[in-house]
Write a protein that binds this DNA or RNA. Structure first.
Lengths: 209, 209
DNA sequence: GAAAGTGTCAACCATCTGGTTAATCGTTAC
DNA sequence: GTAACGATTAACCAGATGGTTGACACTTTC
C-alpha cells in the first residue's frame, strides 16, 4: 500500500474496506463494525492491527493522499509539445480517477470536514521535491514563456484542469439522476469528456487570436 | 428558508446549525447534540420541531438542493452575446458559492455518501420547467448553432464551467495548505479566478482557428 | 515437548447517540 | 382565576459504538 510498508492479506482486506467506508461516510460516519464485516474479520482484529479508529484513518488517509498526488505525477509526463502534455495528462488522469474513485472520495471528504489530516501530509510532499501539482504548474509556466501557449496564470490554469477532470467523479450521483444517459454509458461519457477537455483547453490556451 | 415555509427564530437557528454540521460531517457524522448546542437550544427541541434526524436532514438537504440550483439559475441571465452570458455566469456563480459554502459542502457530502436524497429532489426540478442546468446547456447549444462559439458538446461544456467554478471551494483546505498565498488573500484569488476562467473559456470557445 | 510468539474470537464495558417523557413555565382565552 | 396551549427543560432509556479482555488455537523455535 504505502511504498515503505508491507501488509498481510488480512491487513490488506481491512485497508481496502476502511478506504471504502471512510470514502463514503467520512471518518466519523464510518463504523468499525462495518469495516470489520466488509473485511470479513472479527472487530477485535481491527484494533489488533491498527490500534484505533484514529490510527486506521490516519494510515488510510496517508495512503490516499500519496496515491492522489502520485496519480497526478504519473499523468504529468515529459513530452515534446505542451499539447502532448495536456493530452496525456487529461487522458491519464481521468483513467486514474476512474480506477481510484474511493481515493477521490476520501480526499474530498477530508477536505469537507476541515482537512486536518491534510496538514501533515502536505509536508511530506514539500520535503520530497516531487510535488506533482507544482510540476504541472511549472510545465504550464514554461509553456507560457516559450510562447507555446497564451500568457495565462499557471496556477489558475492547473486548478482548472484538475477541476475539470475530478469534479465529475464527485457529483456523479447527481449527474446520473439528472441525465440517465451518462450512467447508461459511463465509459463512453468519460471518453467524450477527455476529448472535450483536450479540445477546449487546446483552443483556450492556443496563442494569438 | 424554503420558499413555501416560514420558520420561527428558533427553527431558523436550528436550521442554520444543522446545515453547518451536516455540511462538515455528513448526515451520519453530525451529532444532534452538537446541532442543539450550536443553535443554543435544548436537544429535545430539535425533535419537537423536526421530529427526527432523518426529517431534519431531509428538510435541510431539500433547502440546499433548491438553493444550489437557484444559484445556478440566478447566474444564467439573459444577455445579448454568449460572451456576456459566460461573463455574468462565472462572476455571479462564484460570488454565490462564496456566500453559500455550506450549501456546496452539503451537496457534495450527499453525493459522496451515495446521493439517495438527491433522487427525490431532482424530480422537483424536472416537474417545474426550471432546471437551471438545462437552461445553461440550452444556451450553450444555441450559441453553437448560431456559430457564436465553436461546435462544442453543450453538456460537457456546462459541466466544465460548473466544475471550474465549484471545485476550488471543495478542496480549499488542501489548497490553503499547499499554497498559503491563496488563504492570505482569498477574495483576491477568487477575483483572479473569475478573470482567468472568463479568459480561458472565451478563448476556448471562440470560433475559427 | 514446552515455551514463546502470532492470530483469532466471543463476550464484555464504558460511553455516546438518537429519541422520549413527564413536569414546568409563560401566555392567551374565557 | 383557571383552563388550555405551545414552548422548554432535565432526566431518562434502549441500542449502538469504539475499544478491551481473557481464553484459545496454531505455528515456530530451541
Amino acid at each position: 500500500m504505502t511504498d515503505t510498508t508491507t501488509y498481510t492479506e488480512a491487513e490488506e482486506r481491512i485497508f481496502e474496506a476502511a478506504l471504502q467506508a471512510f470514502a463514503r461516510k467520512g471518518k466519523d460516519g464510518a463504523r468499525m463494525q462495518e469495516i470489520a464485516d466488509a473485511a470479513q474479520i472479527n472487530k477485535a482484529m481491527l484494533h489488533y492491527y491498527f490500534r484505533s479508529k484514529d490510527k486506521l484513518y490516519a494510515a488510510v488517509f496517508a495512503y490516499v493522499f500519496q496515491r492522489f498526488f502520485a496519480g497526478i505525477g504519473a499523468a504529468v509526463e515529459e513530452a515534446e509539445s505542451f499539447e502532448a502534455v495536456l493530452r496525456t495528462f487529461i487522458t491519464g488522469y481521468i483513467d486514474f480517477l476512474k480506477d481510484h474513485q474511493d481515493v477521490v472520495r476520501l480526499m474530498v471528504n477530508e477536505n469537507l470536514s476541515g482537512g486536518e489530516a491534510v496538514v501533515q501530509q502536505v509536508s511530506t510532499l514539500k520535503s520530497a521535491d516531487g510535488n506533482p501539482v507544482r510540476a504541472l504548474i511549472t510545465r504550464i509556466a514554461q509553456a507560457t514563456k516559450t510562447g507555446e501557449i497564451r500568457p495565462v496564470d499557471p496556477f489558475q490554469t492547473a486548478l482548472t484542469v484538475l477541476s475539470s477532470c475530478i469534479f465529475f467523479f464527485i457529483v456523479y450521483p447527481t449527474m446520473r439522476e439528472m441525465n440517465p444517459g451518462v450512467a447508461r454509458d459511463r465509459d463512453g461519457f468519460l471518453e467524450e469528456r477527455k476529448a472535450h477537455l483536450i479540445d477546449l483547453l487546446v483552443h483556450g490556451l492556443h496563442p494569438r487570436s
